[in-house]
Amino acid sequence: MDARLTGIDRGQVLRYLGCRGAYDEALEEELLRWSETLRAEAEPRAVWKLFPLLPDFSLAGACFRLEGDAIRALLKDCDQVILMAATLGNSVERLIRRTQAVDMAGALILDACGSAAIENVCDNLCADLAAEFAPRYLTDRFSPGYGDMPLSQQRELFAALDVTRRIGVTLTDSGLMLPQKSVTALIGVSDRPQTLRPRGCAACGLHDTCAYRKDGKHCGTI
């Protein structure tokens, strides 16, 4: 199950760029150019590991007890949890920094492409995992820092999954990941499909400030 980058979703990139309406051909060309550049440079890597989930929401064999109501609600029907981490690697980090020095507009597009690309890598991994674990069911991905799960739990996740050694992602003192285009997540494993699916605007942390909502749209529609 290798990490795979298979595509960069154009709509997603436009959304990250804040494009909320018409845009011109020149921008379209730039999007294409930078997403090619990014794909050529990306070194996608991923790692995952399965842990039994104990009734007190700690993972068996690891020093990791999940905090927050949201993650506990998501995992209420699960008896196992997959920890996963994925990254585009330092080459992408370097490319974005270098581009910022000479072409800020390009760097911005590149950055947005990077965000869409790591999502794609995660989606592919999750699809592979779903196939691997069938007929059991997987929940949505949930990351430290979402909802009321403290970002500080990133450190426990990193230790349990040995993320730095396995795929080269590091944590800063403040708990942020480098390279920046990296994702960690928890996925529940259960015999039943996930019932609670906290998606849509109501569950979003940007509910009050979202520019799309102000326009009467939402971020899945452009």
Partner: peptide
């Protein structure tokens, strides 16, 4: 007025 977006704003600034 949202006739152009951030990448174009930056290009113009550049």
């Amino acid at each position: 007025k949202q006739e152009i977006f951030l990448p174009q704003l930056i290009s113009a600034a550049n």
